[in-house]
């Protein structure tokens, strides 16, 4: 028996918003520690890694490890039926071919349940190697989303260049070019608005705008985002989901042919 209950359905709704542009289907691997999802996007350019820890749920029970293969567009349709303040419970029997979502209104006066067919998905076993990054940059997630959106108007790629003075985002194309430089903040009133850079050595890498924009769909999950970069390895864009886990996106840098 698997059962996971969240007091607010909004977290799960936001998680789904954050992955459904990249993945059409995915396997949620559930065990004692919580729920894990790891999948390459449809075009195999990026990888999504989601962790929701058992202790972040209001109630969590997983008697046997279970993999729930879900069609994300169907799951999204079902979650749209939940009110933001509703409690959501995901349930599945061992070896089940369906999963059930139960939504309960705050006053318990409305209880809905939706059963969804599970899919048998080919499991792709990927390993994420421990990596030391040359630069990590922490900034406001809303600021990062804004930068990606603004620079997308200029070209298909964004160059991210990190030095100890700050980080610079650039794009160029037919209409001209754009540069946004953020200095490391000396002091701020709100911690989430700070720009914090940790740098071993400077790095400049180029990434596809389209993917960075897909990643920023996770903005509402966290006030801050962390970018980790090293030469010739995928960029990590990490959103920490308060009290329950994180979502990380890995994107290969563009390389000149």
């Amino acid at each position: 028996m698997f059962e996971a209950r969240l007091l607010r359905s909004s977290i799960l709704k936001k998680v789904l918003e954050a992955i459904k542009d990249l993945l059409t289907q995915a396997t949620f691997d559930c065990d004692d520690n919580g729920i894990q999802l790891q999948a390459m996007d449809n075009s195999h350019v990026s990888l999504v890694s989601l962790t929701l820890r058992a202790d972040g749920f209001d109630k969590y029970r997983c008697d046997r490890n279970i993999s729930l293969g879900m069609n994300l567009s169907s799951m999204s349709k079902i979650l749209k039926c939940a009110g933001d303040k509703d409690t959501v419970t995901m349930k599945a029997q061992d070896n089940a071919d369906t999963v059930t979502f139960v939504f309960e209104s705050p006053n318990q006066e409305k209880v809905s349940d939706y059963e969804m067919k599970l899919m048998n998905l080919d499991l792709e076993h990927l390993g994420i190697p421990e990596t030391e990054y040359s630069c990590t940059i922490r900034l406001s997630s809303a600021e990062f989303a804004r930068i990606c959106r603004d620079l997308s108007q200029f070209g298909e790629s964004i160059v991210i260049s990190c030095t100890k003075e700050g980080v610079r985002f650039s794009a160029s194309g037919d209409i001209g070019s754009a540069n946004i430089a953020l200095a490391q903040t000396a002091s701020v009133d709100k911690e989430e608005e700070a720009v914090v850079i940790e740098m071993e050595e400077p790095v400049t890498l180029t990434f596809a705008c389209q993917y960075l924009n897909y990643f920023t769909k996770a903005t509402s999950l966290s006030p801050q985002v962390q970018l980790s970069m090293s030469a010739d390895v995928p960029l990590v864009v990490e959103y920490r989901i308060p009290d329950i886990g994180h979502i990380r996106y890995y994107l290969a840098p563009k390389i000149d042919d």
Partner: peptide
């Protein structure tokens, strides 16, 4: 194609 090579090499089967 090179982008895909970078990502698959990085996440090679454990």
């Amino acid at each position: 194609a090179k982008n895909q090579k970078v990502i698959t090499q990085f996440f090679k089967n454990p």
